[in-house]
Design a binder for these strands. Structure first.
Lengths: 331, 331
DNA sequence: CGTTCATATTGCAACGTGGCATGCCACGTT
DNA sequence: AACGTGGCATGCCACGTTGCAATATGAACG
């Protein structure tokens, strides 16, 4: 049975209000009183009741992270940064998985929990920007990833077009001429893959390199298995390729696995590049060349956005965090 | 501005209590009234206030997952299963990272959040079983991993001794005679590594294979970098080895990376085996042989434990979930 | 000695909900 | 006609906290 303010107050011979003042560090408390109350607090191991504080103050101290799946390394690493960073704001991170399902995404955006949370950090998958903005005014929300919702919602992301173009240029510079892309998702409203594809095409065009539909491979989702399947399709189709640029590291690891299985040498016969710079890529064999977004900055910016947004309403912001190419062995 | 019961009641021309009855599905409400109230609820988009419910009912609908770091693939995958499974109990998962720090682990076990949570799922790192049991009676707690706290706390785990022995036997059976182990953590009270070491030694002894200190490599933590460093030490020491059994897949991936870098062939010159069956291992090159714990069962058992424990107090339980060897290419 | 002021402490109310007990009404029974 | 029964609906209260406004205390000053 946890102690409450009343019990502490009774035992210390002061009013409930005074105990509350001590707990919350209100300055107008006599040192002697403060000390006496503090002693009772320690003695009874009093801990403020979060539910009551939440009800009274309207602040839950919770921030929801809404994403397709936490088991995905990229999201896991991001969640780690977010959970660490949240502490500075006295927030605790809550995980909500959508499984990439549109209905579930919609539900979570203003579900039961939506009301009990000080903010939402959302990595949308199936929902279009239009659907994202059309939501009742509840907790502040920040999107991870570039979205066409400028001025309406906050979003934090790297410049995907520039990043994809830079990696493609790297492949061209190192002598590759048949550069495939794995990871397009034409069926999704979520524009991340589209932006990466755009950067890829821009760079090919600028480099005077051939490109076309046969070099672009769609995927259902971004797991290693999808990358593996895509690579198999590409090789089975007999398309000539000397490089693949995958729009996620997981796709790249799956693709590389298949390439090696088929007896290709990486990077000899085939260069493989990824996107995300997940920890696995660093220790892959060969180590994976990748686009490295500054995940810590991404997390920090998202949290700062929420914090500033809950202080005062303002138009949506677009925050771009840095990225760099991490050139390793695979490309 | 979210609607509350009072506003719905006023608009529907009934009492607050009746609206509450409709919301909570209390049967004694006339169908006509129920429908009228429901219409207003939909109209005003009424959503029950979680804080008030929590305060009134003492249930927050939150379960905390306390672990060293969520970015670790094993924990990420486990968190995914837990978040999915929690839904069936109408729980939401909350992530608390300890960074393997004893002080922080202690804090979190009965911290501010500890009181606001319906249960704790804890993967201890630095804390000893004795310290874990010595805590004020707050929310129910279940430990992940085997701990010497039988009868006092619930814990859910695979049989680490048996699993490690089985993998070691597999290495022996496939002809290896100089089998090293990477991943001992003599400085930690947490007994998982110790149990795996025990299984390893048992199997070596039973197989009549040499073992000794020079074959057992300690690590600080379980990251790929630790595995890589351990492998380097092992090779630099000139110890003759034809297999390494790593006590986590991350260690194994780091170790394998170094082995390949040094020009060894895997599994030709060196067999590498891991523990955890994380997704990366499946697509590693070569694919990683590993001990595969049933993570879904682990998650489900942990949640069931919490649920049953919050219904009625009872002595601590020890739940063993199945595991199997996942034999791939690396060993 | 009375007034003023700063400091220290307090009581009241309200946040939104659900348990409890009770009130009300219509209908059927004696 | 009086009474009992059961279906519905309601009012009151408490959960633990904090904002607000008011009050008590003591010191300083005219």
């Amino acid at each position: 049975m946890a102690a409450n303010l009343r019990q502490v107050a009774a035992r210390a011979g002061v009013s409930v209000r005074t105990v509350s003042n001590v707990v919350s560090g209100f300055p107008l408390v006599a040192p002697a009183t403060r000390e006496r109350v503090q002693r009772v607090i320690d003695e009874l191991q009093y801990k403020p009741n979060a539910a009551a504080r939440h009800l009274r103050g309207g602040r839950s101290g919770l921030v929801a992270l809404v994403l397709p799946e936490i088991a995905s390394p990229y999201f896991g690493e991001l969640a780690g940064h977010l959970a660490d960073g949240a502490e500075a704001y006295t927030w605790t991170l809550l995980v909500q998985q959508t499984g990439g399902d549109a209905t579930r995404e919609r539900e979570l955006l203003d579900g039961v929990r939506g009301q009990a949370v000080d903010g939402l950090i959302v990595s949308p998958w199936a929902l279009s920007p239009a659907e994202l903005t059309r939501r009742p005014d509840s907790a502040p929300l920040v999107l991870l990833g570039e979205q066409d919702a400028d001025g309406l919602l906050d979003h934090v992301a790297i410049d995907n077009v520039a990043a994809a173009a830079a990696m493609t240029r790297h492949l061209i510079t190192s002598g590759r001429t048949r550069i495939a892309a794995i990871g397009l998702q034409p069926h999704l409203a979520n524009g991340t893959a589209a932006r990466r594809a755009e950067g890829y095409r821009q760079a090919l065009r600028a480099g005077g390199i051939a490109y076309g539909k046969e070099l672009e491979v769609d995927v259902e989702s971004l797991h290693r298995a999808d990358g593996a399947a895509a690579m198999r399709r590409l090789l089975d189709a007999g398309t000539e390729v000397d490089a693949v640029f995958c729009f996620s590291d997981q796709l790249a690891l799956g693709a590389m696995h298949v390439a090696l299985e088929r007896g290709l040498s990486v990077p000899g016969d085939l260069a493989v590049a990824g996107f995300d710079d997940i920890e696995d890529g660093r220790y892959a064999n060969p180590a994976l060349t990748t686009v490295s977004p500054d995940k810590a900055a991404l997390a920090e910016a998202a949290l700062a956005c929420l914090a500033s947004h809950s202080r005062e309403p303002r138009p949506g912001r677009r925050i771009v965090v840095p990225h760099h190419l991490e050139i390793r062995r695979s490309a």
